[in-house]
Design a protein around this nucleic acid. Structure first.
Lengths: 323, 323
DNA sequence: TTGAAAGCGTTACCAC
DNA sequence: GTGGTAACGCTTTCAA
């Protein structure tokens, strides 16, 4: 397969290469007839401009580098949303995954070597200090991870409001008439502290008493079975699904005897045998804001917010029922 | 952030740009002292060669384009394996996802515009005819999908032996002493026919009688409950997990009363509450063979096999037990 | 509206 | 062992 170049198209259309460039980029500066001839020649030769040469020549890459985890289902949703967020903009996305055999640093390096203009990091694992250092070289926007203020103020953050998420879940349960709502929390996992805070606040606001549980699965289940609450708010969907199955296996009806709510709206939540009510993240909105944020930082816009917080989305399925 | 170029390094090291190129590529042709000086200058300036320029200049991209699905967990495993397969080779990987908002064709187009030297398609959705047409322009290797012989003979295929997978599962159950082994099959899903065939063959070979079930979940479960078999071989892990939960909810002990085996070794299988014995694909081997195959096709090697079939891997967990 | 020419940051060939 | 110098395929500026 021989490389078809601009010169071939120019020759075939009987014009200069520069004109071909003008037409292919869709910028003004060519007569309708010539435009037509160039386009036809290009189609006949099945010509497609070489992306690398194009970007090299133009001096900028118009590329947003994205680092994502290979085994995190939510990153799939985010990527999907990111692709629709950049559709129609001049930006393209370059993906570099991180995983067991591929370090985050290697992914970032690869992106930098491609001269991406900004970095979008999905749930990055690097310490805040490293992110700050990186942000000194290239605009960085972090998604799906919160960064304490003062730790890395140069990096942009777009994230879901975990506290509001817990609050939303509790309010849903309260509206269903539940009174004793237990939270099986996530310990020191990212977001867990915010979720606990939101849970406490909402429960207290409803005039109820917070009840937090944690520990090995079977201990938690035993504790729950000893005194069955009205509802359980798990830390995430996996934990919720586990709980749900274990409770059912022990003869407790869900949602008949107890309602269960998860977090994240991950794929397990949607499984027909699970059908979990959960509080999910708004991937579309996160993605759109992240792209805007990256764009703003690239253009050197002033007053780009450091942190953008997006409200969560309650997804009601079959694991919650009115008392 | 100003772009650091080869010229900056050359100036700092007091040598020509060509020599910098030689050193950076690690090819022979520079004295140890000069090599050392160039490397030091590069480190001091934090210089990293521009990939785009490098690839443009060298005339080839040394890049394998990978199209993967955003919501298919197994593709994550494959990607992970692909990255370790290319580590240490001169090849790099360029990822382009397909999903709800991004068509496979767009992903392929993007890769072609980057001038990748071969395409690795993970579970492609395009019809065989399209793949054949594509293969006429660039070497194509398909993973995780089988292609009937005679349909697209230019396309390389690397896949797991589904028939052997079913056979392996049955043999495991037979070895555990199970006699009545039911297969809840996958209808017309990809691979289902092969799995059925493998199941039939293995069961018959063991002197047992094949028993196939299909249809809506609850009907299948009712049928199973009416006359509980020794073991159930589901079409995939999701189906197996569903079955497992439903059976337990109906008071049937798994693996106490009945053993359950899934397919794919997906993440649900590994969940502690599921702990499913399953037959998985050997991602590492698939990836390594796919890279080799792509490499061979790019180099125009003769006698590249059209189809490479990889044996499956049995993963024994907690859902099967000796009778 | 068009075309010539100078880059973009590399690689690779070829004398010295 | 070293350093010019022409590509690579495109964009972009500047005259015509």
């Amino acid at each position: 397969m021989q490389q078809v170049t601009m010169a071939d198209v120019a020759a075939r259309a009987g014009v200069s290469r520069a004109l071909v460039s003008i037409v292919m980029r869709g910028v003004p500066g060519a007569s309708p007839e010539n435009r037509e001839r160039v386009l036809r020649a290009a189609a006949e030769l099945d010509y497609h401009p070489d992306q690398r040469a194009r970007l090299l020549g133009s001096g900028r890459s118009r590329t947003l580098g994205v680092v994502h985890g290979l085994h995190e289902p939510f990153h799939g949703d985010l990527l999907e949303a990111l692709y629709s967020a950049v559709a129609g903009t001049p930006w393209r996305l370059a993906l570099e995954p991180r995983g067991r055999t591929r370090a985050e640093a290697a992914a970032v390096r690869a992106l930098l070597d491609q001269r991406v203009e900004a970095l979008l990091l999905l749930g990055p694992t690097a310490p805040a200090a490293d992110l700050a250092q990186l942000a000194a070289r290239v605009p960085v926007v972090v998604l799906a991870r919160s960064l304490r203020a003062g730790r890395a103020d140069e990096v942009g953050v777009v994230r879901t409001d975990d506290e509001a998420a817990a609050r939303t879940a509790v309010e849903h349960l309260v509206a269903l008439g539940h009174r004793r709502i237990v939270h099986v929390h996530g310990g020191r996992a990212p977001g867990a502290a915010e979720r606990r805070a939101g849970y406490r606040r909402a429960v207290t606001a409803a005039g109820l008493t917070p009840e937090l549980k944690d520990g090995p699965d079977h201990e938690v289940v035993d504790a729950l079975l000893a005194a069955l609450p009205d509802a359980v708010l798990a830390f995430n969907d996996e934990a919720a699904a586990g709980l749900l199955h274990t409770l059912r296996a022990r003869g407790v009806a869900v949602p008949g005897d107890v309602s269960v709510v998860g977090f994240d709206d991950s794929s397990v939540a949607a499984l027909p045998t699970v059908s979990l009510t959960t509080v999910g993240q708004d991937a579309d909105r996160l993605a759109r804001l992240a792209v805007e944020q990256a764009e703003g930082r690239v253009e050197g816009a002033t007053g780009v917010q450091r942190e953008v917080v997006v409200p969560p989305r309650l997804v009601v399925r079959g694991s919650t029922r009115a008392r």
